[in-house]
Amino acid sequence: MITLTINGLEVSVEEGSTLLEAAQFYGFPIPTLCHMEGLTPYGACRLCVVEIGEGPKAKLVSSCTYPAQEGLKVRTASSRVLKARKMILELLLASCPQSKVIQDLASAHQIRQQRFRQEHEDCILCGLCVRMCKEQMVAQAIGFRGRGEKRSIGTPFDIKSEQCRLCGGCIYVCPACQLRCTFTEPDKAICGGCANLSPPCVEKEPFDDMMCYMQPCVACEIKKD
């Protein structure tokens, strides 16, 4: 067993656990988009950053990939962590405004508006589908291509892969495109419809506090065009 401190609480976890596993086991919530039990940790979304170390040596690391170490001091919600997390969510919203998961996370972090030029992408390149396809379905039908802003996910040469068994695993694990705001068709939407308080799309339905609080709602704005 390894003993470490999370948010001041001394805890022990099994050797080989990651900081995310340790924190979640002891009930400290850490948001994440690219982590899933049963798949290799990847560390792409950076949402799960936590602060480790002290003084000038303190730094942020992605808790899903960082191994628990003896005596490590971890802070899961320091101001530095929250500041970074908010900026990441803002960046996510700026690129993929239609994802319900991202909207919910943003609203839970009191983000009402993002300050960048609005883009409308779906994929956040978290790589869950790639890992699902490779590790659980043992197919390796899809993978990453390119680098930098040209990075994308797909089959080699964009030809339908013979490895693909149409299992749908990739769609199932996708945090961005699956749970997508469906605007005017609330019966099809997981969220129960857009809950913008001045709704351009649907009449209000009862909603819980994990819904879209964007002001104005970008997803709804798109539909108007």
């Binding site: 950076r46 990441i88 030029r117 956040i124 680098r147 930098g148 802003e149």
Partner: peptide, 22 residues
């Protein structure tokens, strides 16, 4: 230069550099 040469794995590096460039 960096927005093309970042590997693109970390969201903050890929998107962050694009936004800084913007």
């Amino acid at each position: 230069f960096l927005k093309d040469e970042s590997c693109g794995k970390c969201f903050t590096c890929r998107k962050g550099i694009q936004r800084m460039y913007e």
